[in-house]
């Protein structure tokens, strides 16, 4: 295994708003080059606070943050801005800045007092815009873009800042699923290709499990670190999210809704296939509990065309759509159970 380079680490870091009552303390964290770390945890567990503290946007309560083994307090504000770029949830409320002008802001710590861009700066700005696939919109106004594009602009700004470390606070909040996946994949590729250390907080747990190299799971009890699979296998996610409406299915790494069960047992017979899976899902959704043996049973007769047989103690019937099948089951139960 090749040795990884640690870009940022903390010693006994305490974060929060009140010295007597730190949100988290004694944090020993480490960010390596080329790694994308997903910061997850229930709402209000301090994800944003941690990111803001690491980025120097809010004072830390105790401990030390090191960048390349230098305590962050020893760095000037400009040196810090050359090490860490941030993408935040703050909305940018400006009428007339183009995509290019906004990305050029990323060069701020590298330019002279007048902010004059040299040819190297222009190069990096162009490259950053290309990396987020926005070259065709470089001269459009920022506030004319879609939410997903706006987020990509801010990521390009962070790239133009040319820092070894990028922090992103909820970069996919307010985005729809395709845009969310798009941004996450983009960040993952950036981490791999540019050897940057990327830390992002997210609510998209399932995606974070699939894409992150490492996970930091922030809970009331502290922080759990590791590769996603270990975090799942150790049952940390189950414990951290104690929901009543849904549960974490650690067989497939997904959250599943907990349906209110009617406690009506039903038997499902058939070969394992797509149709059987969705039949099971439909029955679960309506609250039937699927048992190995029951008075009523549903049999997958064939898959092409899809055909179900519903058998109960009184009669049996054949159906060609799930909707009709479910209606048939409901009708029987209403009359006879």
């Amino acid at each position: 295994m090749e040795t990884t380079r640690t870009l940022l680490h903390t010693k006994r870091l305490a974060i929060g708003y009140n010295k007597k009552q730190a949100l988290h303390q004694l944090l020993m964290l480490q960010l390596n080059a080329g790694e994308m770390v997903g910061l997850i945890g229930p709402n209000g567990c301090g994800k944003s606070t941690l990111i803001r503290s690491l980025a120097g946007l809010q004072p830390i309560l105790d401990g030390t943050i090191y960048i390349n083994n230098i305590p962050i307090s020893k760095l000037s504000q400009t040196q810090r801005a050359k090490s860490i770029a941030v993408v935040l949830t703050d909305s940018i409320n400006t009428q007339s800045l183009t995509v290019r002008q906004l990305v050029e802001m990323g060069r701020f710590p590298h330019t002279n007092w007048a902010g004059k861009l040299q040819s190297k700066d222009h190069e990096l700005v162009n490259k950053a815009i290309e990396q987020v696939h926005l070259s065709h919109k470089a001269n459009r106004f920022y506030n004319e873009l879609s939410d997903g594009e706006k987020q990509r602009v801010m990521i390009a700004k962070a790239l133009a800042q040319d820092t070894p470390i990028i922090f992103l606070d909820e970069p996919t909040a307010h985005l729809d699923l395709p845009n969310t996946i798009d941004i996450m994949m983009l960040l993952q590729q950036l981490a791999t290709n540019t050897k940057k250390a990327i830390l992002l907080s997210t609510h998209e747990l399932e995606l974070a499990l699939q894409i992150s190299d490492k996970l930091w799971l922030l809970t009331d009890q502290g922080i759990k670190k590791g590769i996603p699979e270990d975090i799942i296998l150790n049952g940390h996610i189950e414990k951290a999210f104690k929901p009543s409406q849904f549960y974490f299915d650690d067989n497939i790494g997904n959250f599943r809704v907990k349906y209110a069960t009617k406690n009506t047992p039903i038997q499902l017979i058939g070969d394992n296939c797509k149709a059987l899976y969705w039949t099971k899902r439909a029955l679960e959704r309506l609250g039937y509990s699927i048992q190995k043996e029951a008075d009523c049973s549903i049999t997958m007769l064939s898959t092409d065309p899809i055909k179900w047989k519903f058998t109960n103690p009184l009669y049996d019937d054949t159906y060609y759509t799930l909707e009709n099948l479910l209606d048939g089951v409901a009708e029987y139960l209403k009359k006879h159970a």
Binding site: L57, A85, I92, M105, F108, A114
Partner: peptide
């Protein structure tokens, strides 16, 4: 005029400005 560059960073909001190294 000397503050122009910093004022530009302020357009992004306080937090982004700090992130860019503005005191």
């Amino acid at each position: 005029l000397l503050l122009s560059k910093k004022l530009n960073a302020l357009l992004l909001g306080e937090n982004y400005a700090i992130g860019l190294g503005v005191s």
